[in-house]
Design a protein around this nucleic acid. Structure first.
Lengths: 170, 170
DNA sequence: GATTATTGGTCAACATGGCTGACATAAAAC
DNA sequence: GTTTTATGTCAGCCATGTTGACCAATAATC
């Protein structure tokens, strides 16, 4: 609807708006991860550990290759983190019942406790932001974030808690 | 308005909704930065260089300490990146006219070109997401992201392109 | 049953980008 | 003239990504 507006100002506004988005993403992501980073630092862990814990908690019994597909890092990077989490008793690996090459990943009680703690601080932040912004804003927020995703990620995300839940049940 | 709803399901929905936000932030940030990262890699640079270039481009004549306040990293980390950018002729430093201890930072033509290229790919992604989601969604998106910020960052962000623009003019 | 592909791990080496701590210099401020 | 500020530098550490090579167990296929 603003397509036929004077082009000079329209372009300026557009660029400003886009830059605002870019900047907000940077600042919001930094602040959003900040609190969790502090908790993780206490335990001598980093964000990589957090991601593994988070997605294992979300998908109990996930295999290593499925986790790799979500995180999009190398198996060497993941392996390092996973070994540490097994050593520190946050994660256990069970041999896959169908395919015995697979290691199905589960959180231990300790892992679950840490996951809960981390998700709580981040959830709190989101709850506040969602509350302040209102329901309509939340929908918009989600729609825009989805639009920022690579098409492949978009497919993954829309499948996430569904496919696995159906598969794994519980 | 949904405050008096059955608590079991309400809590479930709430937690799911919050987790959806957490996950979207992770995926969106990763994909959002991915393209720029590729361009940077060509030039043997990383995200840290990008941030410096971006905020110098946005605030020509910014001082090192102002840039530090935005990025919230140590001066050693910034200094490393800044030296590299000066060496590669993307940034120039001029002695501050008032306070001669300050180094005012500016992009060179080459720096501006790179900044433009990086901002273009990220802007394109945002433009697509904004277009697909619609104006209302964009407002909501921005409102939620602002709500995710630390209060201090929130103050900074709302000051950004204003204070400096008034100061520096251009 | 032998071959090939998949799943996962390991070792080694490297780059980036955070961090801390110590120290130096120039200039502003008091 | 002393202190504080703005900035830089050197050295070393850590986390987390990368590549490349190679290995073992097991599944799948010819």
């Amino acid at each position: 609807m603003a397509d036929i507006k004077p082009i000079g100002k329209a372009l300026f506004l557009r660029e400003e708006e886009l830059r605002r988005g870019i900047e907000l993403m940077f600042f919001a992501y930094r602040d959003f991860t900040g609190e969790a980073d502090s908790i993780l630092a206490e335990q001598n862990m980093g964000r990589a550990h957090h991601r593994a814990i988070y997605f294992i908690g979300r998908n109990p019994g996930i295999t290593v290759s499925e986790l790799l597909a979500i995180l999009k890092i190398t198996k060497q990077s993941l392996s390092r983190v996973l070994s540490a989490l097994v050593d520190s008793n946050h994660v256990v690996q069970r041999t896959g019942p169908d395919d015995r090459r697979q290691r199905l990943l589960y959180l231990t009680d300790q892992g679950n406790a840490l996951e809960a703690r981390l998700t709580e601080v981040q959830g709190r932040r989101f709850a506040k932001a969602y509350r302040d912004a209102g329901m309509t804003a939340v929908e918009g927020f989600q729609r825009v974030l989805e639009g920022l995703l690579d098409p492949e990620t978009q497919r993954q995300v829309s499948a996430l808690g569904h496919a696995r839940k159906a598969q794994q049940d519980d």
